[in-house]
């Protein structure tokens, strides 16, 4: 498994924000975490990329424990898109891609710019971009890194419908082409339903139910994932 989380516990400021979180993501799979605000999705993602140290349980990425010093070497194969992250205003789109790819020792700038759909705007300063363009630039930059693991927190938040669709397709085809393991969190059930092979519904720091989107819909007798999610919360 590319990502293996077993019995993850985390306390922040005296409060248990993650309780016994367990899931795994294989190569070429997309696993989605959905849940209400403050449920623990972002903390889980941060734990997977080694930004938050688990208080209990185990988080392994590409076979290495994230608390192990060897994980520093694994980071080159893990890309993380934080929620609400914004690229630097005074760099151009191209310069931003070059900067991030430079950190990872990659040089797939043209691929990133193509995925971003920025076209002739790649030479303009980021501050002239719309919020949606900035998000597309970020997602495209990380996709083109071709890391083996991709962790995305709300990848299409703030992106208009047509570009969000294009980004989802880019993510899906990227996963199929390069067998990337993707862990993402989203409030957009349509997105989760379209992208994810497996979904973990998180509430109050726990995964209350897990399965393929279609299985979850069937299990709760729901017409769509959104309805399944609401029923799952009531059931929990």
């Amino acid at each position: 498994m590319a990502i293996n989380v077993v019995g993850l516990h985390k306390r922040i400021g005296g409060r248990e924000v993650l309780r016994d979180i367990t899931f795994s993501v294989g190569a070429g799979q997309i696993y989605g975490l959905v849940g209400p605000n403050g449920a623990g999705k972002t903390t889980t993602l941060r734990a997977v990329v080694g930004l938050v140290r688990p208080d209990g349980g185990k988080v392994e990425v590409l076979g290495v424990d994230v608390t192990d010093r060897r994980f520093d070497h694994v980071r080159r194969d893990v890309a993380y898109l934080p929620e609400e992250v914004m690229p630097y205003d005074n760099l151009t789109g191209r310069e931003f891609v070059e900067f991030i790819h430079g950190l990872y020792g990659r040089d797939n700038v043209e691929e990133a710019l193509e995925i971003s759909g920025l076209g002739g705007r790649a030479g303009d300063k980021v501050k002239t971009y719309s919020r949606g363009m900035k998000r597309r630039l970020l997602v495209a930059t990380l996709l083109a890194l071709r890391t083996r693991v991709l962790v995305l927190d709300e990848p299409t938040a703030g992106v208009d419908v047509s570009h969000a669709v294009a980004l989802r397709e880019a993510i899906r085809s990227h996963v199929e082409a390069y067998r990337v393991a993707v862990l993402l969190s989203s409030h957009n059930m349509l997105e989760v339903g379209y992208l994810c092979d497996s979904v973990g519904m998180v509430s109050d720091g726990r995964i209350i139910v897990e399965g393929a989107p279609s299985d979850l819909e069937a299990r709760f007798g729901a017409r769509n994932l959104e309805e399944a999610f609401v029923k799952a919360l009531r059931w929990a």
């Binding site: 993380y80 934080p82 914004m86 690229p87 630097y88």
Partner: peptide
């Protein structure tokens, strides 16, 4: 800009 979070997760100590 939350870029620090992205950088800390990148292969940069």
């Amino acid at each position: 800009k939350r870029m620090l979070e992205l950088l800390l997760a990148a292969p940069v100590s």
